[in-house]
Write a protein that binds this DNA or RNA. Structure first.
Length: 257
DNA sequence: ATGGTAGGCTCCCTA
């Protein structure tokens, strides 16, 4: 059994104790992190390596930043979406994991987009288009593939606690939903949907959102058919969101036979 | 009600 998790930590340095406690408790084999918010030299590697993890990271100062932690050896590490080198934001990393049956994984932090009329929204749409093109190339390899991350997209209204509050925002906008569906149409499967678990993964820090369970499902594990066929478990680790000084996202944990 | 809170870093940006 191999477990693969995705978690937007909202600063790995602020969340290090939560991360270490959770790694000890659930011992996921592979962890896909987003919003590490630090340059590679400032990444707290020693504490994580002490728990038996290898690390691939791609950070920048203050914003964004993605990483892969793995109890199995990592190879073929790639930074950024290939053919997209002009985008300097650290939002994508992939690697081949030496699990008994090898698995290619990627950690992706899709741009939030701020508001539909901001200049950040077309950047979000272009990023999703480029991710889609890259997924098409990855799927031709035919290996077990897990692309996990903060997609900043609630796929359907049933993934939103307060549909009216979030209607027309960058998390529920028709244009981002179309692009997520395009990713599924070309052969990726959403682990939450496969396991019939539609739990929320993100609750705003403001206005007591977590206490009111005013959340959205925007973090996803997207699987190739080969990975989907071995999916055996899926859960959102809500306890980690309930801690003091928590990230605004909860880890999402998938299990594979 | 265009607020509210959090993180990083600088007197503001991003989410």
């Amino acid at each position: 059994m191999t477990s693969v998790a995705t978690w937007n930590v909202n600063s790995i340095r602020s969340r290090l104790l939560h991360l270490l406690d959770w790694l000890k408790a659930d011992a996921p084999d592979v962890v896909l992190l987003q919003e590490t918010k630090c340059v590679d030299d400032a990444f707290p590697a020693l504490e994580i390596e002490a728990l038996g993890y290898s690390i691939a990271r791609h950070g920048e100062k203050s914003y964004n930043g993605v990483a892969i932690l793995s109890k199995f050896a990592l190879s073929d590490i790639r930074i950024g979406i290939p053919g997209n080198e002009e985008d300097t934001q650290a939002r994508y990393i992939e690697a081949l994991v030496a699990t008994p049956s090898p698995m290619r994984v990627a950690s992706v932090y899709v741009p939030n987009g701020q508001t539909p009329d901001s200049e950040k929204f077309p950047y979000k749409l272009r990023f999703l288009d480029r991710l889609n093109a890259h997924v098409a190339r990855l799927l031709t390899r035919g290996d077990r593939l897990v692309i996990g991350g903060d997609y900043n997209i609630a796929p359907e209204d049933s993934d939103v606690h307060n549909v009216h509050e979030w209607a027309g925002t960058v998390l529920t906008h028709i244009e981002v939903r179309k692009r997520l569906r395009a990713m599924l149409h070309q052969g990726l499967y959403d682990a939450g949907t496969l396991m019939n678990v539609r739990d929320f993964t993100w609750w705003d820090y403001r206005a007591g959102a977590f206490a009111n369970d005013d959340g959205l499902r925007i973090d996803h594990l997207l699987l190739s058919a080969q990975a989907a066929d071995s999916l055996s478990g899926y859960r959102v680790v809500r306890q980690v969101r309930a801690l003091e000084k928590a990230s605004d996202h909860a880890p999402v944990l998938g299990s594979f036979n």
